[in-house]
């Protein structure tokens, strides 16, 4: 089941984006999803990897994982509240 959920996650590429556009675009994408659905966002801006998940948690969403994919590349998995 977990694998199935993972396959179904929506992807959002935010490479080249900085604060607050990283959060604005993540938030807008989450608004399109149903509660419980997952979104995987790619960031290449280090402060965003720290701040976007913290802000999303504050909004009630769940951070399922943060994975570093390269020197300046991260994937953050979010479950919509």
């Amino acid at each position: 089941m977990q694998d199935l959920v993972k396959k179904m996650a929506t992807e959002l590429d935010l490479k080249g984006e900085v604060c607050p556009y990283t959060f604005v675009k993540t938030k807008l994408k989450l608004e399109e999803l149903e509660s419980g659905e997952e979104l995987v966002v790619t960031f290449d801006h280090a402060p965003a990897v720290e701040n976007v998940p913290r802000s999303l948690k504050n909004e009630g969403h769940k951070i399922m994982g943060i994975e570093q994919k390269g020197d300046h590349l991260w994937k953050v998995r979010i479950r919509k509240a």
Binding site: V18, C19, P20, F23, H45, A46, P47, A48, E50, N51, V52, R54, S55, N58
Partner: peptide
């Protein structure tokens, strides 16, 4: 503080101060 502006200006982290984002300003 706005972490983007901090990064642009090469300012170091200081204990007790949140290296946050514009979301923190909105809050």
């Amino acid at each position: 503080v706005c972490a983007l502006n901090v990064e642009q200006r090469k300012v170091g982290r200081v204990e007790g101060i949140l290296f946050g984002s514009q979301y923190d300003h909105a809050c």
